[in-house]
Design a protein around this nucleic acid. Structure first.
Lengths: 340, 340
DNA sequence: TTGTACGCGTTATCAG
DNA sequence: CTGATAACGCGTACAA
């Protein structure tokens, strides 16, 4: 079952490949009858253009590359869901890679994608990424790059993200307005922008409401095993502060759930003894006991919007237009449940 | 910054493209000195072969395609994780698509992948898939196909799966040995093999232990919203059977958690009043109250093994060897927690 | 040891 | 309206 090609069609129809090619693409300068004939045969033999040849000729692959830190994450699954659905609409393919929070791997993957000739790249940076030459390389190669969620402020490209600082500010303000005063924070690692911004939002909310910022109420989670980070830090928190703490805002839900697990095991009542507020609105926040208040990040929408921006830029490049970088803020939403 | 090509290298070195090409691939019939020169320049100019041209020439893309029913699923995230890690080792790219449990989409995606010239395809079938012509098309195209998890028994290709029947049998036997006698089952949709096999395992365990099989204790979850399926069916179960049921085995954890949620809300104590056993060992089963007994499916390993088998077949085809289809059973494990 | 020539399957330009 | 021809960038049999 030899693959059917333009040449094949041409031969059986006694036409030239160029005529066949044009006929299939409805060029105006081809006889209606010949068009008919060609299309019929193509249909019958199930002709599809060889994508390698098309790509080589057209210098485009109808493929985009996506790099995320890690696959096994409710947030990223949802982002990918959005990306795939949006790409699907344009019959684009999506090459997916995970950096595994490893800078060197991320760098290598960028090279692979560049080399593969993808039409655009979507990245959520690894926590370890502090050097951005690999991103600059993408830009210099003149292929569109959109950063989402974990971005690099200094890089000149489109970005899609949430306003972490505002979201955190809102959550902590909510806690304060509910009457909580000694609010702890389990923050993420020192480097990632999300972690920093959520921390800053937390701090600003305190200060704006005339509550002293107490550094000893801030704990860092950086063991890359969020759940036990949360569990362990909850232990320390209670050990360090006892009744000197009445609420806890965490940088993500998994950490919150880890903490909750510690609280539940030790009969520390949530929210009576200590209130709890997570971040991300993971699926499971609905089903914990008590259910967990959190912040919905609209991950799916983030995937969709990132992809749209990327396609816009791909289109611009095609049309020879200059692309103007966008910064899209995906709206977040406080989800109040029973943990505060 | 014009892309550097073989021709470019050849020109600046006053060599022919073929010499350059061979030099870079360490052909034995090239002077060591020229090799050195060529490689140096290539390195310096950061030469990388144009992948479109290579693919066109070699008829291979160093890319595999993966179709799963849905991205946002702990199980599939883990499978994908395994696939990506394994592909990474060989510097293969992975094109990911989700059928969204839609047969037509699955079919279209197969066509897209075939057309794209991927070197192999990995599929976990949609629940709605009952016609397999699209799979046959893959096989006829002589490109390796490996089915995993949601497979089609009648299709002649390699398969990677767990022994659902045995796993279910073990779980239900465990419940019986613990003394439970009226064991309900929330099964999945009627069509998918997993759903069938888990049901059969459940049934056989009952019969082997001299417990009558009572069809009224079996409920179907087919609203594609597992959690509320579980919740709703739990309501019906209690309504229908009251105290005439003392345990529940569900086709997946999400359904179990939905049921658990209903039980918790209605003060129906787990496991005192009703025991609960899930399936999949989702991340969150650890952190429910009570924690949920389940069956670990080794999703990551399934991803890894599927990919290995696929690569083996790709290699075989390259070597012109005949490929022999494998059926790999990934071992499962009972994880006993506090829900039974 | 190196170079020539061709083909992979398309598309685009230009001439007929 | 149709067809030759070149080009995309690479790999390889064959010639030199």
């Amino acid at each position: 079952m030899a693959k059917v090609t333009l040449k094949g069609l041409a031969k059986t129809l006694n036409l030239s490949t160029s005529t066949v090619s044009k006929a299939l693409k409805d060029y105006p300068d081809i006889n209606a009858e010949t068009k008919q004939k060609v299309k019929e045969l193509a249909e019958r033999l199930n002709y599809t253009p060889n994508s390698f040849a098309v790509s080589l000729r057209m210098k485009e692959s109808k493929t985009i590359g996506v790099i995320i830190p890690t696959m096994v994450h409710y947030f990223f699954s949802n982002v990918i869901d959005g990306i795939l659905k949006e790409a699907e609409k344009r019959n684009y393919m999506v090459i997916l890679m995970q950096s595994n929070e490893d800078y060197d791997l991320e760098k290598k993957q960028v090279d692979l994608l560049l080399n593969k000739g993808v039409d655009g790249i979507l990245i959520s940076l690894s926590n370890k990424t502090r050097d951005f030459n690999h991103l600059k390389k993408i830009i210099e190669s003149n292929i569109p790059l959109v950063l989402f969620d974990k971005i690099a402020k200094t890089i000149n490209c489109s970005k899609v993200l949430i306003d972490d600082r505002k979201a955190a500010y809102d959550a902590v303000s909510f806690l304060i307005n509910k009457g909580y005063k000694r609010i702890a924070h389990f923050r993420g690692d020192l480097n990632p922008q999300n972690s920093i911004d959520r921390f800053l939002g937390y701090k600003k909310a305190l200060l704006d409401h005339n509550i002293d910022f107490d550094p000893s109420l801030v704990y860092i989670c950086n063991n890359n095993s969020d759940f036990s980070d949360g569990y362990e830090n909850a232990r320390k928190l209670i050990q360090d502060h006892g009744n000197g703490v009445d609420a806890l805002f965490t940088v993500n839900d998994l950490i919150a759930i880890g903490a909750l697990s510690y609280f539940n095991e030790n009969k520390i009542k949530v929210p009576e003894r200590i209130a709890l507020f997570g971040f991300s609105n993971w699926f499971m926040t609905k089903i914990t006991t008590p259910s967990l208040s959190s912040i919905d990040q609209n991950a799916f929408k983030m995937g969709v919007e990132s992809t749209k921006v990327l396609f816009d830029e791909i289109d611009s490049i095609h049309k020879g237009k200059k692309i103007e970088f966008k910064k899209i803020i995906i709206d977040t939403e406080l989800i109040i449940r029973n943990s505060c």
